[in-house]
Design a protein around this nucleic acid. Structure first.
Length: 295
DNA sequence: ACACGGACCTGAAGGC
DNA sequence: TGCCTTCAGGTCCGTG
């Protein structure tokens, strides 16, 4: 499910139900997800109040009242469900309600808050994980120390990309997938950003910089494309949350459309372009692109 | 230092 | 119907 826009959508949904609330009960139903849970995980969370809920790259960061941070990564299939006490069902997470109909065997963590709300972490593939770290240790932790810039922050600029790309032999797709360069992009939004920037995923990353190391126009286009594709996806409530429902329980109809991702064999959506979207594999991941307008 | 493949794990979808 | 293969939004680790 989650790339940056999806994680941000989850953050916005959880923030109003979580922040300011005290955790009164934690049910940890298995010893590990991707990694083992921290020692005495449930006991340590219990009694603490959530001060804030932030995000760094694809990580959710819940700051707790005692100076520790609950770090949560959703992996490929992690998601949260919120249910009010006695409601008998899910309750809106922001604009959305998450489907709770899936197999309860994959409900790995259930957190109960002091107002009776329960937050359930569900993750069939268990690539997600949770950690408890002292706030002061966050920046230096191996998970965060090497992360690149936030794509929606000021630090992402054509000059930054050019500096990182200079001398790189990797292609653009791999370059953008690398969390050490830009943190939070994943397979879908890399494909979509390259399409918007009209850049081939196979082009050398080094072509974002001139021989002197100055950013090229391509770098400028790419920065704009990355920002706009993420902003649009966040505005749509996380385009890849396919199983969301409207607040009234009806199926959503406004699912965000991708321009290239998942559209192999279909016509390119650029007006006037007669290209056909192709699928190829780079570093083991599917790449979707229009060979005609992406150069 | 970097690039690549495989590994982790489950479920859905498609082919036969 | 059912079995088999392929694929999926992420990242870590080992090997060249």
């Amino acid at each position: 499910m989650p790339e940056l826009p999806e994680v941000e959508t989850v953050r916005r949904g959880l923030e109003p139900v979580l922040v300011g609330r005290r955790i009164v009960r934690v049910e940890q139903r298995r010893p590990d997800l991707r990694f083992a849970f921290p020692e005495r995980f449930a006991a340590r969370l219990k009694g603490r109040t959530v001060i804030s809920l932030g995000r760094r790259a694809k990580y959710l960061l819940a700051r707790l009242s005692d100076g520790e941070v609950l770090v949560m990564h959703l992996g490929m299939s992690g998601r949260f469900t919120v249910a009010a006490l006695g409601s008998g069902g899910p309750r809106p997470l922001g604009e959305l309600v998450y489907d709770t109909g899936s197999d309860p065997a994959h409900n790995h963590v259930v957190i109960t808050l002091d107002d009776g709300t329960t937050i359930t972490y569900h993750d069939p593939r268990r690539f997600g994980y949770m950690l408890l770290l002292p706030e002061a240790a966050l920046d230096g932790h191996p998970l965060f120390a090497g992360l690149g810039v936030e794509p929606l922050g000021n630090a992402l600029s054509p000059a930054y990309l050019a500096a990182k790309a200079r001398g790189r032999r990797a292609d653009l797709k791999a370059f953008l997938m690398d969390q050490r360069i830009v943190a939070g992009l994943g397979n879908i939004y890399v494909c979509e950003a390259l399409y918007r920037a009209r850049l081939s995923p196979f082009r050398a990353a080094a072509s974002l910089a001139t021989a002197a190391g100055k950013p090229t126009r391509r770098a400028e286009r790419l920065v704009e494309a990355i920002r706009s594709v993420l902003r649009d996806a966040i505005a749509a409530g996380g385009s890849t949350l396919r199983d969301y429902r409207q607040v009234d329980g009806s199926r959503g109809s406004s699912q965000h459309a991708f321009f290239v991702y998942g559209r192999e064999g279909e016509p390119c959506l650029t007006p006037g372009c007669r290209g056909i979207v192709q699928r190829s594999v780079q570093a083991g991941r599917s790449t979707f692109y229009c060979p005609r307008c992406q150069r």
